[in-house]
Structures are given as C-alpha cells and as structure tokens.
Design a protein around this nucleic acid. Structure first.
Ligand SMILES: NC(=O)c1ccc[n+]([C@@H]2O[C@H](COP(=O)([O-])OP(=O)(O)OC[C@H]3O[C@@H](n4cnc5c(N)ncnc54)[C@H](O)[C@@H]3O)[C@@H](O)[C@H]2O)c1
Ligand SMILES: NC(=O)c1ccc[n+]([C@@H]2O[C@H](COP(=O)([O-])OP(=O)(O)OC[C@H]3O[C@@H](n4cnc5c(N)ncnc54)[C@H](O)[C@@H]3O)[C@@H](O)[C@H]2O)c1
Lengths: 214, 214
DNA sequence: GTTATATCGATATCAGTATATCGATATGCT
DNA sequence: AGCATATCGATATACTGATATCGATATAAC
C-alpha cells in the first residue's frame, strides 16, 4: 500500500505525548533534549523513544546532548498533521456531543468541527459554540458543502451503526465513535471506537491485580 | 504476583465488546454461539476469540454448536466484575465532568460515582444527577466515608498531576485520567490515560493511509 | 588539548500476541 | 445408523513491538 515505512499504532499513540512534553519544556527554555530525559519523564524505555523519533524525524540526534527541541516539535507536528486542519462533523448533540462541540482542545490537534446534526427537532437551529445543529435530512447537503472527512458519532448505541452507514454514504472516510458498540465499516474507511467500557475494564483489572499483590 | 495466569490487556479490551454482542443476541433469543460467528461480527480471528473465551470461562465449547450464550455472559460479567459495584469519585465538574456524572452507562459496567469535587466555589453544593459537588478541602474526609478506590480526573491539564497526587494521598488506587497529559503514578497505583489526542492521531494516520492508497 | 562519558544509531535478541495447523468429536443430515 | 462437517482445544509457528548490546562520536569537564 504505502511506499514509506509503516509506523506502528503504538508509536503513533506515543507521539502526541512527546509533543505535549516538548512544547512544555520549550516554553521553559529548553533547547536540547535527549531520549533518555524524555523516557524518564514518561517511565518509558529510552531506546523506544529514540526509535519513535527516528520514524518521524530525519534530523539525527547528537551524542551527549540529543535532539533540538524546536526541530522535534516541528517534525512531530508535521507528521501528525497538526499544521493543516482536518474538518469533522458530529452527529448526536446530547450530553457528550455538546461537550465535545464546546471543547476548544481539538483545534490544537488540527481538528475542526464544522457541522453538527441531531434527529431531535427540539434541537434544530440551536447553536453550541457557534455551531448550528442541523436535522438529519440535511446531512448529505451540509457535509458536501464542507471538506469534512471525519465523522464523530455521539448518538445512543441503538442508532450508531445506522448513523455510521449514512455518514459513509455522504463521503465520510474516518469515524470517531463514542457510542458503546464496535462499529463495523468498509475497508476503505478508518474507524476508531472510543470504547470506555474497554478502557474501564483494563483499569479495573490492573487495579484488582495491584490490590491482590499485598 | 498473581497466582492465576495473567490475562493480556488486548484480551481484556475485547471482552466488553463480546459481552455487549452476547447480551444483544441473547435478547434476540440465541442460545448457542460459536467463536466463528462472534469473530465474523467483529472482523476478528476466530482462534483469537476462542482463546479469549478460554481465559475467562471454564465451560468448554461443543463442536458444531459452540458455547452457551447465557453461560458466556455470566462468565465474562463475572470476570470483569460487573456484578459488584466499584465506587469512584470524580474531580473537576466542568463540561466533561458534568457529562460523565450525568451518564447512566457506567452503572452497567459496575462503576458507581459516589462523590464529586471541584475547586470553583461557585459550584459547591450544586447537584448533578443527585451528586453534590464538594470543595477540594473535603476531599480526604468525603473519600474516606466511601469505599472508592477509583478517581476520575476531569480538571484542566495544568492541575491534573497535582489533583492526581492528592487523590493517591487519600487512598485512591486507580486513576482514570481525561486530561490531556500522561500522568505518572507510583507503581502500586493503576492508571489509565484516556488520551484523545493519541486516539485522534491514530484515526488521522489511518485515514491518511487509506486515502493515499487510491 | 586530552580524557571521560552520555548519548546516538544500527543490529541483534527477546517477549508477547496473533495466526495457522491438526486431531478429536458432537451434531445435523441423509 | 452412518456420514459429512463445523467447531473445539492443543500445539506449533509467525509476526510485531520492546528491549539489549555495542561501536562510534560529540561534548563537557579538567
Ligand atoms: N455521556 C457520557 O459521558 C458518555 C460516555 C461514554 C459514552 N457515551 C455514549 O455516547 C453517546 C451519547 O451519549 P449522551 O450521554 O450524549 O446521550 P444523549 O442521549 O444525551 O444524546 C444522544 C443524542 O443523540 C440524538 N440522536 C438519537 N438518535 C439519533 C439519530 N438516529 N440520529 C441523530 N441523532 C440522534 C439524540 O437526539 C440526543 O441528542 C451514547 O451512545 C453514550 O452511550 C456517553
Ligand atoms: N470537554 C471535552 O470534550 C474534553 C475532551 C477531552 C479532554 N478533555 C479534558 O478534560 C478536562 C476537563 O475538560 P472540560 O472541558 O470539562 O474543562 P472545564 O474547564 O469545563 O472544567 C474543568 C473543571 O475543573 C475545575 N478545576 C480546575 N482546577 C481544579 C483543581 N485544581 N481542583 C479541582 N477542580 C479544578 C474547574 O473549576 C472546572 O469546573 C480538561 O483537561 C480537558 O482538556 C475535555
């Protein structure tokens, strides 16, 4: 498929963490940073950090000092696409949907929510954070006025798969699902199931394991 | 540490997915279910499903028919601890905090939020979903009146590590962090960083990869 | 200027997870 | 009843990601 080397999911998940840390120490005046120091901060392995960096930055680090903070920041941001915005639409403007719409943090991640939809007529026309809520009938028309490729799903579990299918029909190519079910999509569509039950299960299991060992 | 065999994180993440599916088909009247059918539903590998099941259920499946749906449900629920509630407290009752407090879905995951805290005096005494918001001064006293072992963090990034440390001082043993930073905790504390930036990074990368290959 | 050392990058090894193979068997079908 | 077959569980293999090793080297310290 892709000609350049594949970057693993685990590496990609760590990159935003490095980035936040680098931005922080940059603000504090740091110029150089070593993989060792980054690793210590996160309790990671320095070799892992170095390998992650090597995959997204062509600049090579120097013995004894490491990497240039500002260069690393630029390279990671570039790799993650934080420079140019991706547009997204959101479907389901209930509790969670409205919260995400009001969240300012996505902008710095290169994500801009450009349209919102709901099936509840009571919400039509309402504005949240400057975003007007549209009816589901307008889905196709409104999406096609944007260049949105990402759809955020915050509808109840029962309607999530159906909403997902409709989004894909409208040309959406990436689904960020917050409903508690595992959505299935065609192979040309990217999907991320934000499964809080799975997350909590891991936390509870680890908690139980640690409690047991004393 | 633990005497029984360890169950991998990946397996634990899949179990809640299986469970939701099993409950659904149980409602639809299904009695038996094969690993093949489960796997097809999720686009997983049937051997993987069988191995996951083998780790949490002593009941063995039968050739040609598979497993008993109701038995599997019970075994998975039991393994995940959905039968007896874990208590949790939440710190940070802003947009996201209030949304989580109002969310009814946690109960079926065996999680019960029993207390809420914020540093903003304007919120003290306010009730969300029957939960009164306490001041941070009351943290220790209120937590110790409960049996909460889990702390949910929904404060701004800047105060998250400090809040985390205080929770641990109060006897909290598992941290569910929604603030955008990688919290570091002592080794006897379980931590789950719900990192939306990491999540979105993976989605964006996969989206870009799929767009490229056409 | 010389020396000691922290860090790098490349390569090798290790560990853990996912997948493949295969014999056994219970069930459904003729 | 007998046969074909879907599925199981156990074992073996393959794959992917994490960690260890090691020579090279730029820098800091003296
Ligand atoms: N609230 C949370 O903290 C939380 C946490 C984790 C997961 N979730 C999940 O996120 C989803 C939303 O949760 P919520 O608390 O905001 O629920 P909610 O009921 O407050 O909001 C759901 C919204 O979706 C709309 N909707 C329903 N069917 C629709 C359809 N077919 N098309 C378009 N819009 C439709 C409703 O009108 C409503 O506005 C749920 O699946 C929930 O399980 C929520
Ligand atoms: N809102 C979202 O959709 C969203 C999404 C992902 C991550 N997050 C993260 O979750 C956190 C909360 O987000 P939010 O939108 O609810 O923010 P918010 O500003 O609405 O709420 C934060 C709350 O924390 C309280 N607070 C601040 N400092 C505190 C302290 N030291 N002790 C106790 N309480 C304190 C504030 O009074 C406020 O009520 C943030 O870190 C945010 O980045 C939010």
């Amino acid at each position: 498929m892709s000609n350049s080397k594949e970057v693993s999911k685990s590496t990609i998940e760590r990159l935003p963490k490095y980035l936040r840390y680098l931005i922080e120490i940059d603000k504090m005046g740091a110029v150089d940073i070593s993989s060792t120091t980054i690793a210590e901060h996160f309790n990671f392995n320095p070799i892992q950090v170095r390998k992650d960096i090597a995959q997204v930055s062509k600049k090579s680090g120097k013995p004894k000092t490491g990497f240039k903070v500002k260069e690393l920041i630029k390279d990671i941001q570039n790799f993650l696409g934080y420079n140019n915005y991706s547009e997204a639409v959101i479907v389901g403007c209930g509790g969670l949907g409205k919260t995400l719409m009001a969240y300012s943090g996505f902008l710095s991640l290169g994500l801009k929510i450009v349209a919102a939809f709901d099936s509840n007529p009571a919400l039509f026309g309402l504005e949240v954070n400057g975003l007007k809520i549209h009816s589901m009938e307008e889905l196709d028309a409104v999406i096609n006025k944007t260049s949105a490729k990402i759809g955020i799903i915050t509808v109840p579990r029962e309607s999530a798969q159906q909403v997902c299918d409709r989004l894909i029909e409208c040309g959406i190519k990436g689904i960020w699902n917050f409903a508690p079910l595992h959505l299935v999509v065609p192979s040309d569509v990217a999907i991320r199931n934000e499964d809080m039950a799975a997350s909590l299960a891991v936390l509870s299991y680890e908690l139980a394991a640690k409690q047991k060992s004393d």
